[in-house]
């Protein structure tokens, strides 16, 4: 009763405040509209065109999507892409985890230099990196020459123009992308928890498995989805290091659009990929709220 009375007695907000609120509203809508327009013009319109073409070229219907499922050629490309992406993501994740863990447990002087090392790699273009790997890994490249000279092998190893080369190039590119979200998630882990686990009887490995690993799980999920999404779209690296023998989805789509002019199939593939990525992002969003769940302790 008393509470209700108080509510009634509360003075109405002064009018000037209301005017101020209206002005704020205007700014709010301006700030929302501008990016909205940009988004519509540069993303949503082209994207809807892509979707549209995929169901109208060469004729109306889902024929292109049926072809994706039925054509053995397309299926092989999807399979190659999936396989390479899974291997790349797994390797990048493991290496990224080790890297992040190492950085975090270094003395602070070393920490800075290792972070610089990781960040520097973002500045080197993917094209240059692919060529660098070619010089290193080709038949008469640095690696093979060294191994031949050292007498460890008698024939040069086939390190590029195959899946191995593509995976090496992609993993090299992806490791920092895996390491950064992991680093962020590991940083939020209380450094006393593993010692606490050991004080309670856990061996070092148990402390890692039962305490550290589960606490870094949100980072692992975020990193793996990020890396997986990134690696799905790789174009330059497979094209150069695969030497035309390892065709991944992005290159195949480009082929459909630029060479065979099969726009319908190309856009259908692109749309399918988009939907797949979108579904992964939904999972990622859940993982992030996961992190909040843990971080609040």
């Amino acid at each position: 009763m008393a509470v209700a009375g108080e509510t009634v007695a509360a003075p109405a907000p002064p009018r000037t405040r209301l005017l101020g609120a209206e002005r704020v509203n205007l700014v709010y809508w301006a700030l929302v509209l501008v990016p909205l327009v940009v988004l519509v013009v540069f993303y949503i319109y082209p994207l809807s065109r892509v979707l549209l073409i995929s169901v109208t070229e060469p004729r109306l219907g889902f024929g292109n999507y049926v072809r994706i499922v039925e054509s053995t050629g397309v299926r092989r490309v999807i399979w190659t892409t999936t396989w390479i992406c899974l291997v790349t993501s797994t390797l990048s994740l493991v290496l990224g985890y080790l890297l992040a863990y190492a950085i975090l447990h270094m003395r602070s002087g070393w920490q800075t230099w290792m972070m610089v090392g990781v960040l520097l790699s973002f500045w080197v273009s993917i094209l240059i990196r692919a060529f660098a790997w070619i010089t290193l890994l080709q038949t008469r490249g640095l690696v093979n020459n060294f191994l031949l000279d050292a007498g460890l092998i008698s024939q040069p190893l086939a390190l590029i123009r195959n899946e191995l080369g593509v995976i090496i190039g992609m993993v090299h590119y992806m490791v920092p992308y895996a390491a950064l979200p992991l680093l962020a998630s590991m940083r939020s882990i209380d450094a006393r928890l593993v010692p606490a686990a050991r004080g309670l009887g856990a061996r070092p490995l148990q402390g890692f498995l039962y305490v550290y690993l589960p606490l870094s799980l949100p980072g692992i999920i975020a990193a793996s989805i990020l890396v997986l999404i990134f690696s799905l779209g790789f174009f330059v690296t497979p094209a150069l290091l695969g030497g035309g023998r390892v065709i991944m989805l992005a290159e195949y789509i480009a082929l459909q659009v630029n060479e065979t002019l099969a726009w319908g199939l190309g856009t259908a593939l692109a749309s399918s990929m988009l939907i797949t990525v979108f579904l992964m992002l939904v999972v990622l969003a859940r993982a992030v709220s996961f992190r909040r769940l843990f971080g609040a302790a």
Binding site: D190, R192, L193, P195, A196, A197, R198, G199, L200, G201, A202, R203, V211, P214, L215, F294, A296, A297
Partner: peptide, 20 residues
């Protein structure tokens, strides 16, 4: 002896409970 083999119970400053 390693800490986990000593069989001592420990209450850390700030408790160090496992948040997960």
């Amino acid at each position: 002896l390693e800490p986990e083999k000593r069989n001592f119970g420990m209450v850390f400053q700030g408790y160090a409970l496992f948040p997960h």
